[in-house]
Amino acid sequence: CRSRRSPQICQQANLSLLALDSPFSVNEVEALYELFKKLSCSIIDDGLIHKEELQLALFQAPYGENLFLDRVFDLFDEKKNGVIEFEEFIHALSVFHPYAPIEEKIDFAFRLYDLRQTGFIEREEVHQMVAALLMESEMILSDELLTMIIDKTFADADSDKDGKISKEEWKVYVLKHPTLLKNMTLPYLKDVTTAFPSFIFNTEVED
């Protein structure tokens, strides 16, 4: 905002613009700004979310490697500059809105699981993700069982049997198994102003 008006008015204009391009109202964008501020000052108070801050929020600890956290962070960090800005935060959360188009959720999940960004979810990537999940949840599965699970998944999802799941195959597969997209919807986003009641003391906008 380059206006000579007060910073509050500039910020209001920016939030309104963000709301226009999202499923959120201005009030909801303001409420999400409260969440963003909280997350972005948890370790380094610079108004940006660093990976360690997202990790702290999701795992209650800012250290340790987690493949899925890395993938989520990469997709939120659209500019690929190592931090999540508020605009990027709103863009990515828009996909998780209960009323966001299912195609956006399908695409986001595909990009999440396409670890090497080849345009396909490869068998090796699925193996890597299941192994990471087992490590994270301290579960132990025999190699044989793990292979069976992956075989079964590919038998269902990889319809042309080329050993990798294309975007089209992924779409058909998740539409057949919609529970796989369950974590792509955050019911909180439908009523975000209730989730952050503190924001109502700050708002200057009537929805």
């Binding site: 929020a57 999701l58 899925f68 999440l112 699981y113 299941v130 990471a132 699970i149 974590n183 955050l186």
Partner: peptide, 26 residues
């Protein structure tokens, strides 16, 4: 559900790193 009837993505989707709902729970 036994592990053999599970599919890999069902397992993967239970990761805490993919559960963004926890951002709103504190």
């Amino acid at each position: 559900k036994t592990p053999v009837t599970m599919n890999a993505f069902e397992l993967i989707s239970t990761s805490q790193g993919l559960n963004l709902g926890s951002l709103f729970e504190k």
